[in-house]
Simulated scan of single mutants.
Amino acid sequence: MNKVLLATRNRKKLIELQRILDGALGAHRIALIGLDDVEAYPELPETGLTFGENALIKAREGCRRTGLPTIADDSGLAVEALNGMPGVFSARWAGQHGDDHANLQLVLNQIADVPDEHRGASFVCTVALALPGGKEHLVDGRQAGRLLREPHGDGGFGYDPIFRGDGQDRTNAELTPAEKDAISHRGKALRELAKLVAKVLPPA
């Protein structure tokens, strides 16, 4: 089985990506490992101004440090009333990286006076694949929807409890993992990535 590094320490994300790739790749299996599973190295700051730039920073460094094909993603919430923000700053919008509750509450506070018809938002994800030898690939996924006024549901993570996708009657946090994978920005991007993986990584 091909071993591929996912440049993250987020175990939830590792499980989610492994699940989506397994479903998309079928018999062409890969084993994802995270940054906690390889020898530690200094991680570069995410200084890019786009999701693609940040994903490539992480994927290139992981590949260079480990010699493994490396997948990295950058994703976030783009709120129309906030001119596309928090965008690449989604994970640290409230000032501390990864504080989901604080980030969510700050967004709700910032658009508290915005009427329902103008609370459109999209989850956006770009996934990078860096291969030994220097080849790189980028794929994108997007889920459009709108923001509710209070959280609903205990699943998912990040802004999922306040985001209801177009055509849905529940937030992303109220969906089962399989339901979310089928429509989410990350699920869409990873299914495109799976097509690439099947082409560029030979079966183990």
Results as ranks from 00 to 15, higher is better:
Glu46Trp: 14
Asn54Asp: 11
Glu16Ser: 12
Ala27Ile: 12
His28Asp: 04
Phe51Lys: 06
Ile20His: 07
Gly26Ala: 11
Ala40Arg: 08
Gly26Cys: 11
Asp36Met: 01
Gly26Ser: 12
Leu56Ala: 04
Leu17Ser: 12
Leu25Asp: 08
Glu39Leu: 14
His28Met: 07
Leu17Gly: 08
Leu56Val: 05
Ala24Asp: 14
Leu17Thr: 14
Gly52Trp: 10
Glu53Trp: 08
Thr50Phe: 04
Thr47Glu: 13
Leu56Gly: 01
Leu44His: 07
Ala40Phe: 04
Asp37Asn: 00
Ala24His: 14
Leu32Gly: 05
Glu53Lys: 08
Ala27Asn: 14
Ile20Tyr: 09
Asp36Phe: 06
Val38Asn: 06
Ala27Val: 13
Pro45Tyr: 00
Val38Ala: 04
Ala27Glu: 15
Ala40Ser: 13
Leu49Asn: 15
Glu53Asp: 12
Ala40Gln: 09
Leu32Arg: 01
Tyr41Ser: 05
Pro45Arg: 01
Leu21Ile: 07
Leu32Thr: 03
Ala40Thr: 09
Leu44Asn: 01
Gly26Asn: 10
Phe51Met: 10
Gly23Met: 09
Pro42Leu: 01
Asp36Ser: 02
Asp22Glu: 14
Pro42Phe: 02
Gly34Glu: 07
Ala24Arg: 13
Leu35Asp: 02
Gly48Ala: 04
Glu43Arg: 02
Asp22Gln: 10
Pro45Leu: 03
Val38Gly: 03
Glu16Val: 12
Ala24Ser: 15
Arg29Ser: 14
Arg19Val: 04
Thr47Gln: 12
Gly48Ile: 04
His28Pro: 03
Gly34Leu: 08
Asp22Arg: 09
Arg29Ala: 14
Phe51Glu: 08
Leu44Phe: 00
Leu49Glu: 15
Arg19Gly: 05
Ile30Lys: 04
Gly48Pro: 00
Glu39Gln: 15
Thr47Pro: 02
Leu21His: 07
Leu49His: 15
Gly52Asn: 11
Gly26Leu: 12
Gly48His: 00
Leu25Tyr: 12
Leu35Lys: 06
Pro42Gly: 03
Ala55Tyr: 03
Thr47Lys: 12
Glu53Met: 08
Pro45Thr: 02
Ala31Ile: 12
Leu49Ser: 15
Leu21Gly: 00
Gly48Phe: 06
Asp22Leu: 08
Leu32Asp: 02
Ala40Cys: 06
Leu44Thr: 08
Ala27Cys: 11
Gly48Gln: 00
Ala31Cys: 13
Val38Glu: 02
Gln18Arg: 13
Val38Tyr: 03
Pro45His: 05
Phe51Asn: 02
Asp37Phe: 02
Leu56Met: 11
His28Cys: 04
Gly34Thr: 08
Leu25Ser: 10
Leu44Pro: 03
Glu53Gln: 15
Gly23Asp: 09
Leu35Phe: 01
Asp22Tyr: 09
Glu53Gly: 07
Arg19Gln: 12
Thr47Gly: 05
Gly34Ile: 08
Arg19Tyr: 08
Asn54Ser: 12
Glu46Pro: 11
Ile33Glu: 01
Leu56Arg: 05
Asp37Ala: 06
Leu25Trp: 10
Glu39Ile: 12
Leu44Glu: 11
Gly52Arg: 11
Ala40Leu: 04
Thr47Ala: 13
Gly23Thr: 08
Leu49Val: 14
Leu56Ile: 09
Ile20Ser: 10
Arg29Met: 10
Glu53Thr: 07
Asp22Ser: 11
Asp37Gly: 00
Glu53Phe: 06
Gly23Gln: 07
Asp36Leu: 03
Asp37Tyr: 00
